[in-house]
C-alpha cells in the first residue's frame, strides 16, 4: 500500500492548490459576491428549467459500451499472463473479443451506432 503514499500526497497538494486558487480569487475578484443570473440562450429569458429528461438518442451505444467495458476487466490481468499461459490465452481472449465484435457488427447493422 505504501506505493500509493505519493498519490495521496499529490492529491493533497492539488486539493490545496485548488483551495488556494479559490481563496486567491476571492481576494482579487472585482466583485466578491457571485453574480445571480438567468441561464443564457441568446439574451431572452428562459421559459422553463433546463433540468429535464434529456432525450439520449445514443442510448443503444451505452449498452454496447457496457459490454465491452466489462470485458476490459478481464483484459487487464490477461496482459500479465500471456507468455506464461501461452497460445491458449491468446486464442481464448481473441475468440471472446471476436464474439463481442460480432455483436457490435450486428448492433451497427441494426443502426444502433447512428442517431441522426
Amino acid at each position: 500500500m505504501s506505493e500509493y503514499l505519493p498519490v495521496l500526497v499529490t492529491l493533497g497538494a492539488v486539493l490545496v492548490l485548488v483551495a488556494a486558487l479559490y481563496v486567491m480569487a476571492a481576494v482579487t475578484a472585482t466583485a466578491r459576491s457571485a453574480l445571480d443570473v438567468v441561464p443564457f440562450a441568446g439574451g431572452l429569458p428562459p421559459a422553463q428549467h433546463a433540468f429535464s429528461r434529456f432525450h439520449v438518442r445514443w442510448y443503444p451505444v451505452t449498452m454496447v459500451f457496457l459490454a465491452f467495458d466489462m470485458e476490459m476487466i478481464f483484459m487487464y490481468p490477461w496482459t500479465l499472463v500471456v507468455s506464461r499461459v501461452g497460445p491458449a490465452a491468446v486464442i481464448e481472449m481473441f475468440v471472446f473479443l471476436g464474439i463481442l465484435v460480432a455483436a457490435v457488427v450486428y448492433a451497427w447493422r441494426e443502426g444502433a451506432l447512428r442517431w441522426t
Binding site: 472585482t30 459576491s33 453574480l35 443570473v37 438567468v38 433540468f51
Partner: peptide, 14 residues
C-alpha cells in the same frame, strides 16, 4: 482576467 472576474450563479442551479 479570470482571477479578477466575478463568479456567477444561475437560477436554481445544482
Amino acid at each position: 482576467r479570470l482571477l479578477v472576474g466575478q463568479r456567477r450563479r444561475t437560477v436554481a442551479a445544482d
